[in-house]
């Protein structure tokens, strides 16, 4: 008797829940579903992109498209880094509708260093410190209005930060 009752309640709850969601979708009012879906998409860590060895593969895994060079993407980085373990690099852009900014080092064992999500209201400007194994091109990718723009600069490294 007890089992039957609890089963009854569980079924009833499921039915109610289902009916509620169906009603919301039916009405076209989904008050919490949309932000949740957005948050989920935003929060996902791009595991695959951080496994790629080459710059091209990393960009492909991260964005699924290629970037075009743009003088609207500015990178501030030293010409020569004395210590490859700590290379201060910042990037900024005058492009509108920026959704993300990523940093890649082509000669590192894993090319992708960092990818920053820029929600609306956050300025498209980031400063951070990265590791460089040796002298290499450093690429900044800016995603703006669904397109990718890049800037690239060679930084000379006197002491690598990834060897041992």
């Amino acid at each position: 008797m007890n089992i039957t009752t609890s089963e009854f309640f569980r079924t009833r709850r499921l039915v109610l829940k289902g009916a509620g969601v169906a009603a919301l979708i039916g009405l076209g009012v989904v008050p919490f579903d949309v932000p949740q879906a957005l948050a989920a998409a935003n929060d996902k860590y791009p595991e695959e992109a951080f496994k790629q060895k080459t710059e091209a593969d990393a960009i492909k895994a991260l964005y699924g498209k290629t970037a075009e060079p743009s003088d609207k993407v500015k990178m501030d980085a030293p010409e020569i880094a004395e210590n490859g373990a700590v290379v201060p690099i910042s990037a900024t852009t005058t492009l509108a509708d920026v959704t993300s900014i990523s940093f890649l080092v082509s000669e590192n064992p894993i090319s992708l260093i960092a990818s920053y999500k820029i929600p609306a209201g956050t300025l498209p400007s980031v400063a951070n410190r990265i590791k460089m194994a040796k002298t290499s091109n450093v690429t900044v990718i800016v995603e703006a209005g669904g397109k990718l723009y890049s800037a690239r600069k060679e930084i000379k490294v006197t002491v690598g930060g990834c060897g041992g």
């Binding site: 860590y45 951080f50 894993i110 260093i113 920053y116 951070n128 410190r129 590791k131």
Partner: peptide, 9 residues
């Protein structure tokens, strides 16, 4: 939101 790999100092 920052997604980082092992290449960050």
């Amino acid at each position: 939101v920052a997604d980082w790999g092992g290449g960050v100092s």
